[in-house]
């Protein structure tokens, strides 16, 4: 949902005038520590409750995971992955949600003016007033997050509780977390918190621990502490996510060339007519 008390830094499909941000706001971020997540799903429930999202039907497939994947009516999913590491079983849990990229592929792919906005504090949000439900953002997102809602004909995803954040509250999921594995604050503070936790993990048997804040998308609004930081794919995260090449080629190369080519063809016909005129049978004088 679009919250107008926050200013807009970037707006989809806007030629000029999309950015309204005048005030300097610090970037905000969620901090997720996978090493202290206990998979209680309190964040899932808090998300559903605060956003008034109805339960989504599912079926048991032999996992603790609530749904196989995110849904238009389910924006915060704890993923459970089992993995054998050095002969022992690791039960990896990760909070799957919109990553609120600094360079959002969804926003870049979106064709509807103002349907996806990035606020001055870095939150990336879908504005359903303007969304046309085309699904281009699904292709633009390197994290497979936006979902099409058959009910509304529009896209839906985590808003980073922009309605709460804009009035000085922390997101619902953060408030519900019982272990302190979730925190919310400025991006700077969350990176500092994450780096400290990574140092702690490295000193305690996780030499490969790392903070996941991928620079391929300019960093994300969700910074994640990974015990096995050398294997983000174990947690369902791309090793080096970036705005898809196809989307960049389409928007930045093919589109301007196409516009010039089409207008060129149009001007060409005018030039032809001015140069050669009509082809017509004329009686000999």
């Amino acid at each position: 949902m679009s919250v107008h008390s926050l200013e807009i830094r970037r707006s989809s499909a806007s030629l000029l005038g999309g950015a309204t941000g005048m005030r300097a706001l610090p970037d905000v971020a969620k901090y997720v520590d996978t090493s202290t997540c206990i998979g209680c799903k309190a964040c899932e429930v808090a998300c559903q409750e605060w956003n008034d999202l109805a339960p989504v039907a599912t079926h048991q497939v032999g996992t603790y995971q609530t749904l196989p994947t995110l849904d238009a009516g389910f924006w915060n999913l704890i993923r459970f992955d089992e993995r054998e590491v050095d002969g022992g079983l690791k039960w990896l849990m990760r909070k799957d949600q919109c990553m609120h990229c600094a360079e959002p592929g969804c926003l870049e792919a979106c064709p509807a003016p103002g349907a996806i906005v990035q606020y001055a504090n870095g939150i990336v949000d879908v504005n359903p007033d303007n969304c046309i439900g085309c699904g281009y953002c699904e292709t633009g997102c390197p994290f497979d997050v936006p979902r099409f809602s058959a009910k509304t004909g529009k896209m839906a995803k985590c808003t980073l509780c922009v309605d709460r954040v804009s009035v000085g509250l922390e997101p619902a999921c953060i408030k519900a977390c019982p272990t302190g594995c979730l925190h919310f604050g400025t991006k700077e503070d969350m990176v500092a918190l994450g780096s400290a936790r990574v140092a702690q993990l490295k000193a305690n048997g996780f030499p490969q621990a790392a903070l996941y804040d991928p620079q391929g998308v300019g960093g994300t609004g969700v910074v994640t502490v990974l015990g096995f930081g050398d294997h983000p794919e174990w947690y369902g995260l791309a090793a080096n996510p970036h705005v898809p090449l196809g989307v960049k080629l389409w928007k930045n190369i093919l589109r301007p060339i196409g516009l010039i080519a089409i207008f060129g063809a149009l001007i060409g016909t005018v030039g032809h007519y001015f140069t050669y005129g009509k082809k017509e049978y004329r009686e000999e004088a």
């Binding site: 196809g246 389409w250 093919l254 196409g258 060129g264 063809a265």
Partner: peptide
């Protein structure tokens, strides 16, 4: 799959650009 979507978007754009030029003439 993702790669099919990306290629389709590019193919749709490219085909339409060339076709519109042709139809203009």
């Amino acid at each position: 799959p993702q790669i099919v979507r990306e290629l389709s978007i590019l193919l749709h754009s490219l085909t339409f650009i060339l076709f519109v030029m042709l139809i203009t003439w």
